[in-house]
């Protein structure tokens, strides 16, 4: 349930952010038409931008289970089998020769 809400908030965050971009462009266009110099973005647009950032970051953190930051995480899925066998030192005088003849007989 929390995941769905988080995804929804992500979406809202993106939409609000796009709206800020659009309003900033609109504002510039208005200034150009009325021949005023462009000095700063109005406060309400800045506020909207920050709100969208907060909403979006809360959402993105909660949409997935984060993997722990630990150096040994990738080694935790190794098992003993991968270190019990040293391929460069294989010995061919093993049970293979007997088992193989049995397998071929059947």
């Amino acid at each position: 349930m929390k995941k769905v809400i988080a995804q929804f908030l992500c979406f809202i965050g993106v939409v609000v952010f796009l709206h800020t971009v659009y309003s900033a462009l609109q504002h510039r266009k208005y200034l150009r038409l009325t021949d005023q110099p462009f000095e700063r973005i109005p406060n309400d647009i800045v506020f909207e931008c920050i709100v969208s950032l907060v909403i979006f970051s809360w959402g993105i953190i909660n949409t997935q289970i984060l993997t722990p930051i630990k150096v040994s995480t990738h080694l935790a899925k190794k098992s003993f089998d991968s270190f019990a066998y040293t391929p460069n030192f294989t010995v061919f005088k093993n049970r293979g020769q007997y088992i193989n003849s049995l397998l071929n007989d059947n």
Binding site: I65, P68, S72, L75, A76, S79
Partner: peptide
């Protein structure tokens, strides 16, 4: 300490260590 079962509480197989 390097691979603790407490690090991965929600998984569908027993811990490796």
């Amino acid at each position: 300490e390097l691979n603790s079962p407490l690090d991965y509480p929600e998984q569908d197989h027993p811990p490796t260590n």
